[in-house]
Amino acid sequence: MLGEGILKGMAETARNFVGSFVSKERLTTVEYPEERIAAIENARVFPFLVYDTADWEAGLRCVACQICEKECPPKCIFIDKSKDKKPDAIGKQQFYPTRFDIDISVCMSCQICVEVCPFEAIKMDNEFELATDDRFGGLLLDRKQLAKPNEYYHQIHPTEAAAVDARLAEEKAKADAKAKGAADAAAAKAAAVLAAKPEGAGD
């Protein structure tokens, strides 16, 4: 019958109209900014630098290896390496970045910098309300703005942060064991030399 399909369509719309007053499923609006959807754990927006201790400069994990700068597709990371070295989390002397800028107006949130970093120093943040009206540098984030503590990382990506911490702890344990083994071997060698000396001196 002519008009049957039209009536079926109108019944469908009516069902949605009535349903929007009764069920949440038929009214999916979230009125931002008063209401917000809970952030999904894995969401990524722009990178940030992780630091471990209370001092953001000393505890910065980044050693200025510049791998992320090379691999970044739109080339939005700018790093200047330092001339001197400072000890890192496991005690090894490393360089550090004197300048670490990310231009977030260019960054495409691809996460490749995170993937290639060997030191778990750069991770993805999920803050997106970064609009500014300063167009000549308001979107160029420098080292201080990018540095955020490890506790913050745990807050936004708990599972990932736990895995990273486990990995770092494992590496530290291995480095400690190696250092301990080396120290033991050196001490044993020194003791052997010391023990061998009086015999040789008695000649």
Binding site: G5, I6, G9
Partner: peptide, 11 residues
């Protein structure tokens, strides 16, 4: 499909 496929105007 209810909304659209049998709709005479769409056809």
């Amino acid at each position: 499909e209810n909304l659209l496929s049998g709709n005479e105007i769409l056809m």
